[in-house]
Design a binder for these strands. Structure first.
Length: 415
DNA sequence: TCTGGGGTCCTAGGACCC
DNA sequence: TCTGGGGTCCTAGGACCC
């Protein structure tokens, strides 16, 4: 039996949410009716466009381009810094509504969900009608529009929701693949990004249909298992299912572009400390331990390199992580000006596997206690409550990186 | 393209073991 | 060691998603 899958996607999510918020707080203009965009923030250096209005789109403004570029295309564009806390609230409200229509809803990202409608048909009737009613309900109750794609497969539902925007419902059932999906340029296929698209075009593949009809073995030779996967996608083959339970987090990381090029080792250490604070706080918040620590560096020439290390035992202690971070950095940094730094923790495990090693010093125990106290205070009074003395007068923010609380659902490239 | 920041997964090579 | 092959772990880098 075929399943019925919905993919629901908020139109220009960040911008819509900001617009709704402003209207609710007395603003007389709707951002969606102006040339406006969300992007950039206090650390101003080369911010990018995260979401844009339809009007801004008409000026040729694209998601991901620099603020400067956007301004050159439309000087009067209204730029608004992102407010992630608001987005979380809107995302939750959106998700709550969807949950009324099925017990099987997967949060795929802040602004996208998959919904398995198969067993809801008895209750809510025809899928297409249900989709329209969901769309209208979200619009009426929450004030923003969504696109809904319907199919028997997650991939096809996602492709359908991308068809024509905004405020639309589309289907791509298997018999419609040829007509609705194959004529699209190859770039539109899920998982075909800026590196793969030119390779495919080099093989004479211009549309999704071209890929679908291409020799499967030949594409495998060129692009290995990845090639096989996108060939399957082009043919509407996808056996993934809507997963309710959020998968356990695989890694936690924070990184930042510094507003000036850092050339001093001590200063780099300070930035790394601020990142380590955030990353390790999030790790403890998730009630997990890490076994692998990595540091990444992007230099003034935009080349990136990283260095990682597996720990002898798992930890969640800020100072243990920080010691490793500085050592890794010192080992890998070539001494050139630094533009961007990152700290990432992977190979996470739950605390149930942790046994205090006999080599752990009493010292460690005290540090971990200090972490717990700091977490509690910062949670209660804000992250600025406690600042390590090394940051005073440094001009560097003591804690940086986002996604502090609520750990919103992160997407994976897999369906 | 003067190019953010949060993720996931895959691949490839070298070390090491049997 | 003028030596084979398979498996696993570790590390670095690169692809993709939003």
């Amino acid at each position: 039996m075929d399943r019925i899958i919905f993919h629901i996607d908020v139109n220009s999510a960040y911008l819509s949410w900001e617009a709704v918020y402003r209207l609710q707080h007395g603003s007389l203009t709707d951002l969606r009716t102006l040339s406006s965009a969300i992007g950039g923030d206090e650390k101003s250096r080369h911010g990018i466009i995260l979401a844009k209005s339809e009007i801004a789109k008409k000026y040729g403004i694209k998601t991901g381009e620099s603020l400067r570029e956007a301004k050159s295309k439309c000087p009067e564009i209204m730029l608004i810094p992102p407010n992630y806390r608001l987005y979380m609230k809107c995302s939750n409200a959106f998700y709550e509504i969807l949950c009324e229509y099925s017990s099987l809803v997967q949060r795929y990202s802040v602004d996208e969900c998959f919904l398995d409608y198969t067993d809801s048909q008895a209750l809510y009737g025809d899928p297409l009608e249900a989709a329209y009613s969901i769309k209208e309900r979200v619009k009426k109750e929450l004030g923003f529009t969504v696109n809904i794609g319907i199919s028997s497969k997650k991939l096809l539902a996602k492709m359908a929701s991308e068809l024509e925007k905004p405020d639309k419902v589309h289907t791509i059932f298997e018999h419609e693949i040829k007509e609705k999906m194959w004529p699209l340029p190859i770039e539109e296929l899920f998982m075909v990004g800026r590196r793969t698209a030119p390779k495919l075009r080099g093989l004479g593949i211009k549309t999704i249909g071209d890929l679908a009809k291409y020799d499967r073995e030949l594409i495998r030779i060129h692009l290995k298992s990845f090639g096989e996967m996108i060939w399957n996608y082009a043919n509407g083959i996808d056996s993934s299912t809507v997963k309710k339970e959020e998968s356990i987090q695989k890694g936690i990381g924070n990184s930042t572009t510094i507003s000036y090029d850092v050339t001093d080792r001590k200063e780099a250490h300070l930035v790394l400390l601020s990142l380590t604070e955030m990353v390790s706080m999030r790790l403890r918040e998730a009630d997990m331990l890490t076994k692998v620590i990595s540091v990444s560096v992007k230099n003034f020439g935009f080349s990136t390199y990283s260095h990682q290390r597996k720990l002898p035992g798992p930890t969640d202690c800020t100072m243990v992580i920080y010691e490793n971070v500085t050592q890794l950095f010192d080992q890998v940094w070539k001494g050139e000006p630094i533009r961007h730094l990152g700290v990432h923790l992977t190979d996470l495990c739950g605390k149930e596997f942790y046994q205090i090693s006999i080599f752990d010093k009493n010292d460690r125990e005290r540090q971990m206690q200090a972490d717990r106290v700091m977490d509690a205070l910062r949670k209660k009074y804000g992250n600025d409550t406690l600042v390590r003395s090394s940051f005073i007068n440094s001009g560097i923010r003591p804690i940086r990186g986002g996604v502090g609380e609520d750990n919103y659902q992160m997407m994976s490239s897999l369906l």
